[in-house]
Design a protein around this nucleic acid. Structure first.
Lengths: 192, 192
DNA sequence: GAACCATGCGGAGGCTGCCTCCGCTTCCTC
DNA sequence: GAGGAAGCGGAGGCAGCCTCCGCATGGTTC
């Protein structure tokens, strides 16, 4: 949780470069999706490509730095939702927020999804607290009898990711459409 | 629909090269996913890269050639399902088969999904008859009252693609898991 | 304020993959 | 078997990834 126990503080120029890189990476990811050229990011930040790679050895490390704040906020929101009066609605709200965050940049859902299965990834750790909050929300909704008891966390996150990804593909869609998809997912496609 | 009205027949060597390319592309896609190196495909087939590009100007054109038979078979299956006694089950079966075909190679779901929105794509035409059959299956299931009437074709295909994609991400999963995901999608996550 | 050196910088260069272009070869036809 | 249309091949230009190592610079110490 924000454990920035930097063994030794970065040199002033290094700190400055790092900050610039994160800012420019965010802009580039927003513009070109998660596959944006890293050489381009370095150029925008006015540093050499070597500097980018020293600070962020992988694309995922850079992505993690860009997304960190957003993920922390989502984790906090999830913990708040645990106190929500209606467990089912709380779960849906969480899933919705998660999907919205996951579609900030084109291709992000896929990157996050791959990451969940790769413990060595820099993004993995960032997701852990969110994931834990999701599990707690699911357990509570199941306990209340509002969500089917045979649903596993794996199935839930798989489906939430699937819907988020599918939503991301329809570039013309807005948040209202995502909302509708989640209603369909939770209510089912079968007539009652 | 198999409209191979080849203006003039290919020269013997060209025909041979084309066939080899399709066979090797299938092998490469199976091994490395849809992003397999095309230079590698050409090398495996024993032809120059220029030959590959003349026969298949884009990666999608090659993909289309590899998948054509499979898609035709799926279209036929969908038309058969229109005569199935239980419309809801028919729809689920179709969705299942479609998802299974879409996960033949890693990354195929994403390629197909992008294709649905790009009418100029070579894959697009291949999907049209399948898509039409899907619409007919949906309409029938809704008419019978077994599937909710407010579900649109767009929503259905979005969700089916989403589930197929999510399934594809879990490399350790098998067909039984895909089946379970579809049951969850059709029944809903909400307890009854 | 000078001298030292750990920390950090930059970008050339090697690699892979995409795709085009055009001189050369092969097949088909008459 | 000669001519020409159809097809072939791979060099070459481009973009992006990532590494490596000689050089610069900030921080520290006296």
């Amino acid at each position: 949780m924000g454990g920035e126990t930097t063994a030794r503080p970065l040199r002033a120029d290094a700190r400055r470069n790092r900050d610039r890189l994160v800012a420019e990476a965010r802009a580039a990811f927003e513009q070109d999706g998660v596959t944006a050229s890293l050489e381009d990011v370095a150029a925008r930040a006015g540093v050499g490509i070597g500097t980018l790679y020293r600070h962020f050895p992988t694309r995922e490390a850079l992505l993690e730095a860009v997304l960190r704040e957003r993920f922390d906020a989502l984790g906090a929101e999830a913990r708040t939702l645990l106190g929500h009066a209606r467990p089912r609605e709380a779960l849906i709200t969480w899933a919705h927020g998660f999907a919205a965050a996951g579609t900030t940049f084109r291709g992000l859902t896929a990157a996050l999804s791959a990451t969940l299965r790769d413990e060595s990834s820099a993004l993995h750790a960032s997701c852990v607290s969110m994931r834990a909050a999701g599990e707690a929300l699911l357990a509570r909704a199941q306990h209340s009898g509002e969500i089917r008891a045979d649903l596993t966390v794996i199935d839930l996150s798989t489906l939430v990711f699937g819907v988020a990804w599918a939503y991301e593909q329809n570039s013309g869609w807005g948040p209202g459409d995502l909302d509708r998809l989640f209603r369909l997912l939770f209510d089912g496609l079968t007539a009652r």
